[in-house]
């Protein structure tokens, strides 16, 4: 790994579910570096040459960094809101760039075609106008006022509704989605995708949710999210080029891709280039 990736080395990444650590620890890797996540109080993450890495346990997951994180782990205030159910969805490995996993999560236009009759349906394919900004103070990418017609927006939704969305990227490989909460109008359901970069073209994805839903069995909530993400997986593994291009080239964004454009611009601004392709091809 070259110094060119230092800005991403100094970020936090999820490396395990805190509740699922085996006694012998979880052997995994982060950005090509073999590491072991060890259970205990406190949880430790060590490299093969015995170096102890920074660790924080938050949002159900163990987070670590190969470098010196310049910031605390991003805040999700809703995680501490009483009455929410915190759902650990488990790991799914995807043979794609960690940045592509995030970028796909930010895309709405694919819903009717990949999540047919669940998150979208033909002929309701139009993505309306929405707002995108890179918020300077928080240093995060935000997309707001996103609306989309959905046949079954959540496990707790019965019948089609127009769903409101907000998307947020607080870290290069973590993204938070806020969407209409069918069970409690006025609140947002929180659905996240935490991505662990194994290499530039391989990642472990840890979806996690904080929902208002007292009706649905936990297993059904987990399976709904696994179903959605597994529908994405086969698409993600077939995207070309495998690295996410940050310069305009072969991929021509449309108006519906504004969030993706802002995400790429933000990545480039911060030199978050692990898993990215810099020269247009």
């Amino acid at each position: 790994m070259t110094m060119a990736h230092q800005p991403m080395i100094d970020q936090w990444y999820p490396v395990a579910l805190a509740s699922q650590l085996p006694p012998e620890g979880r052997a995994t890797q982060l950005m090509g570096m073999p590491i072991t996540v060890l259970p205990g109080t406190p949880v430790r993450v060590v490299t093969n040459d015995g170096r102890d890495l920074h660790v924080i346990v938050r949002y159900g997951h163990v987070w670590t960094s190969l470098g010196k994180p310049s910031k605390e782990l991003f805040d999700i205030p809703e995680a501490d809101q009483p009455g929410r159910r915190l759902v650990e969805v488990g790991v799914v490995r995807v043979r794609c760039s960690p940045l592509r996993a995030v970028e796909n999560f930010l895309d709405i236009a694919h819903f009717p075609f990949v999540h047919t009759d669940i998150l979208g349906a033909e002929p309701h394919t139009e993505v309306g106008k929405y707002d995108v900004e890179i918020r300077d103070e928080e240093d995060e990418v935000w997309a707001t006022k996103v609306q989309f017609y959905q046949p079954q927006a959540a496990k707790s939704a019965s019948g089609g509704i127009t769903t409101d969305y907000m998307y947020r990227v607080p870290a290069p490989t973590s993204t938070v989605l806020y969407k209409t909460c069918p069970a409690r109008p006025g609140e947002w359901d929180v659905i996240t995708l935490f991505v662990q970069p194994l290499t530039e073209e391989l990642c472990d994805v840890w979806p996690w949710m904080a929902l208002f839903d007292d009706e649905t069995a936990l297993t059904d909530l987990i399976h709904f999210q696994q179903m959605i993400f597994l529908q994405d997986r086969s698409i993600l593994e077939n995207q070309i080029p495998r690295l996410l291009p940050l310069d305009p080239g072969r991929e021509i964004p449309t108006r519906a891709d504004l969030t993706s454009v802002a995400y790429r611009r933000w990545l480039k601004r911060h030199q978050f280039t692990y898993g990215a392709q810099l020269v247009a091809q």
Partner: peptide, 10 residues
């Protein structure tokens, strides 16, 4: 009847 196979190993 949904069974939490992954990650719950139910």
């Amino acid at each position: 009847r949904a069974v939490d196979v992954h990650p719950g190993r139910e």
